[in-house]
Design a protein around this nucleic acid. Sequence first.
DNA 1: GATGAATGAGTTTTCATTCAT
DNA 2: GATGAATGAAAACTCATTCAT
Lengths: 214, 214, 214, 214
Amino acid sequence: MEVERLPRKAREKAFHRSQILAVALELFKEKGYHNVSIHEIATKTEFSIGTLYKFFKNKEDLYSALIIEKAETVSQIVDEVLSKKDDIENMVKSYIDAKTKVFKDNLDFIRILIIETQKEKGFEKKTHLGKVLHELHQEELKKVASLLEKGIRQKKFKKLNPYHLSIALGGLIDGFMFNWLENSGSHPYEADVSFITEVFFSGCLSPKKTNLSG
Amino acid sequence: MEVERLPRKAREKAFHRSQILAVALELFKEKGYHNVSIHEIATKTEFSIGTLYKFFKNKEDLYSALIIEKAETVSQIVDEVLSKKDDIENMVKSYIDAKTKVFKDNLDFIRILIIETQKEKGFEKKTHLGKVLHELHQEELKKVASLLEKGIRQKKFKKLNPYHLSIALGGLIDGFMFNWLENSGSHPYEADVSFITEVFFSGCLSPKKTNLSG
Amino acid sequence: MEVERLPRKAREKAFHRSQILAVALELFKEKGYHNVSIHEIATKTEFSIGTLYKFFKNKEDLYSALIIEKAETVSQIVDEVLSKKDDIENMVKSYIDAKTKVFKDNLDFIRILIIETQKEKGFEKKTHLGKVLHELHQEELKKVASLLEKGIRQKKFKKLNPYHLSIALGGLIDGFMFNWLENSGSHPYEADVSFITEVFFSGCLSPKKTNLSG
Amino acid sequence: MEVERLPRKAREKAFHRSQILAVALELFKEKGYHNVSIHEIATKTEFSIGTLYKFFKNKEDLYSALIIEKAETVSQIVDEVLSKKDDIENMVKSYIDAKTKVFKDNLDFIRILIIETQKEKGFEKKTHLGKVLHELHQEELKKVASLLEKGIRQKKFKKLNPYHLSIALGGLIDGFMFNWLENSGSHPYEADVSFITEVFFSGCLSPKKTNLSG
DNA sequence: GATGAATGAGTTTTCATTCAT
DNA sequence: GATGAATGAAAACTCATTCAT
């Protein structure tokens, strides 16, 4: 009995935790970190303030947990795409697709992620949150880099530093998506996706291929 | 004598204003908007709180003034570069140079600019600050776009949407510079500059040119 | 046990509330609204500032609650007197007695009531407080008027507009009591009470009655 | 020359002083004492703050001067009426006329007078302002009392304490005028004036006269 | 374990008054 | 003498966090 009881409790606890985070995300998106009070989160989750403090040691901790959880989810989505073996070019396209979709689907989260990423002394690596986000970002860059490297070895891409190329690709995606965000999604984002793909490939595909395809 | 008296006062006032903004920038960079109190700014500037409120009607106003002033300075630097008539390719190179340099020289400012840009429901165009930043950004995109368009007409660049291309270029620059920022300027940023230039041109120069240069 | 628990809490809360109001009244009487800080009320009540703000949403609200509560108490006292069926003349006498006693017992409250009544553009009916006070006053005038009307119908009083007469009676009472207040209660207020009664009756009783009684 | 220069300066000074008081009265009426800043008065008078402080040693002093000046004007109006020798009854009527007219013409002033009169410990006789107002009021009561006394000696009024009668008359006037004020002058005040007169006389005239006139 | 009342440090902002020019 | 920039004490109010029940 006891053996089953704890797991159930644990499951419940995890569920409650995720409920709190979901509500908090909603509120932070809507009003910004400083304009949301613990009291408000407590009321909306229908947990007591004391219970919230059982789950998270303070407001900052709750916020960190929220960001990290989301960032890991996004990371997993990207990982999945990168782990599906396919033709290199298709994989890059899938990556661009996945990233832009994640961006579009999580606009508000992305917004607070950016704020947090830059907030308080930039990538403050002393902060737990800062470290985790830095690592997740660097891991992604490396994974994309290794994909691009494979493409270079297959002579499909020009001989350029693959880590730099992955930064370039990330920059392209972010640039377009921020522009889309700035103009409040006034046009279908798919247009941007195809442009990103076109620009990136026309710059990276090795000359011969370019001529063949062109 | 009287003729000079007012200008001196005005000059002094402007100087004091800039001093306050400089100190405030320093503090905001260091601790973030919400962790800096007016009292602290007053103490550090060695002005009284009341004097601060003579210059700026409230904390938000001081912050806005800070951001807008800096953003306009950056805008002017870019404008200057874009107004010097030269060979298109050199002008693009100069633009990349200028932008990366501005970025490097104003790391901390860029950081709080990003936060502000995304803060509270993204580009909140209802805010004066939000509107001003949005406009400055769009103006820059258009200027770069018109430069690139000229290049396209001169058959130096591929036939791609020039506005989109300017977003792409912006994305590339930001991507690299953020990466550089994230790694706290661990390597000379000039390396990034040349990579940005290379990637951008290899993707944009019209096919013939590519073949000749490759 | 549980059944009693909530009521006890509620009772305690009500008690605390009344304690705060009592202390606040004391302070406002002593120093005036603008010269009493929330901090001071908190210190004197031995509650924290935060607790005060749990009871009242701001300083104005605390003040309003204070005035309205007192005004309603006074209103009830008057109501009680007016509801006891008796000979008309005795009822009027009782009313004068009750009013002067209330006045005497609540000198300081009356003072701030007057201030509030006249404060900021007179009976500002837009304010909740203003409305409530206005209504309470008008209600009282009407009740007294209907009492006097009965007297008129019974031919005990002269045929004068009863509403106007109630204003006159109120004016008489206030005039004497303010004079008494101004001279800091230098003489027993009962002297004033009998004078008010005499003047009012000799002015209102119909000539025949006057002759009979005189 | 010097002999004439000072008087002109003095005249100018007095004029400026009255200008300041006029503007201040306007502002205090409109917004209340605590919502008007010295800065605002300075701006509206087109004098500098420093100059204002040359005329009045502080805000309270300016306020006192304002109230006292007005109160003395009112006092003079009443004095004039009371000094015109006439039939007693006509003089009382004139007094009621004058008082109600003053009330009507100075509604806003009366309002702040009441506030001040009751503000901060009621008739605080320690304050200069308090003392002056108290004295002015008592003087008026005495003058009216001596008028009424004459009427009693002439057997025109009942044998009642004339000082008390003067309080009663004052109370009647104030009661009606406050009611009129409370209802924002919704009806012509002359109606009240005649009612005050009627009530006061029918209550004060000796029975014989009443019978004769009735 | 859960609760939420109580805390009070800390924030932004105002404005009467002074005094160097 | 006139000025008005500078001052800074003091106010109202918020909210993360604690801890007795």
